[in-house]
Design a protein around this nucleic acid. Structure first.
Lengths: 147, 147
DNA sequence: TTAAATGCAAATCTTTTGCACTGGC
DNA sequence: GCCAGTGCAAAAGATTTGCATTTAA
């Protein structure tokens, strides 16, 4: 499948990332279109702002780092991404926005999905009075076994 | 119970925070003793570096913010604290180092313990080959209900 | 055309580091 | 007394903001 022709967000086989952005209420500006292609054309991805910035430059699109940050934030607020802060240093952004747990590999500073059925909650999370659950983060922290 | 005489870390009723620090392999310097009193004399606490810094100043101990950060990091590495990054902005440090889930209240930027039995994992987390589980973070994100 | 909304330089906020100096042993 | 190891000023790193400019409609 050509990346530019990927099936974006269940919008149908002809939809492009412009449609994805429009549907999310974001104007499909040049930079957003570029970044959304990089993010959503492949499979599930876990990127940091720096990674996306570097990738865009390598692809010949000289965006600024601030634009990468702003786009990631806007995409997250629009529901296209999920923000995961595993370590207090920098955040990752996951193109899979459905609730699912993650492995975080400390040595490699890498975030991975945990295959869905491997780990489940025993009960649905309860909110406090006057509040509602807006998300659930489950992160299993891994270190390389000393051997 | 007088705060200065609290039972620190199961070391017995006579132990002070100096013993707690020594047992953790940290020299009981003046600043560390002050900060450990603030952290461990009361019940369970969830503090940021800024909160601890402000609290120390208010108590008449003019430490620098860097010292608060460094002490929190050292205490965490020594196993006296647990670091929790709920939001990609700043980290909280929990004086309860046993594995347990948290509520994070977005509007108030507050971290709370979830009473233990309310939420459990259905299965023990599995590591990947060549890795071991070094920690599990479960955070339920709450927002104030629009009403 | 036009104004809503962007992209980015500069600022801000969080956290770490280098090193002069201290204070625990 | 002495030197391992601190405490903090300055630096580094992560993220946000203000505003001149762009560009989608």
């Amino acid at each position: 499948m050509d990346a530019a022709e990927a099936d974006f967000g269940g919008l149908g086989p002809k939809a492009g990332c412009k449609d994805l952005l429009l549907k999310a209420g974001l104007r499909p500006t040049r930079q957003r279109v570029i970044l959304s292609k990089l993010l959503f054309a492949g499979g599930t991805r876990h990127v940091t702002a720096e990674m996306l910035f570097t990738e865009a430059r390598a692809a010949g699109f000289p965006i600024s780092l601030a634009t990468a940050y702003n786009a990631l934030k806007q995409f997250t607020q629009a529901g296209l991404l999920r923000q995961i802060p595993p370590n207090g240093v920098r955040s990752f952004f996951d193109t899979n926005t459905t609730p699912h747990p993650h492995y975080y590999l400390h040595g490699e500073d890498t975030l991975l999905d945990i295959p869905a059925a491997d780990l489940l909650l025993a009960s649905a999370p309860e909110a406090l009075p006057g509040h509602e659950v807006s998300g659930v983060d489950l992160i299993i922290h891994l270190r390389r076994t000393p051997s």
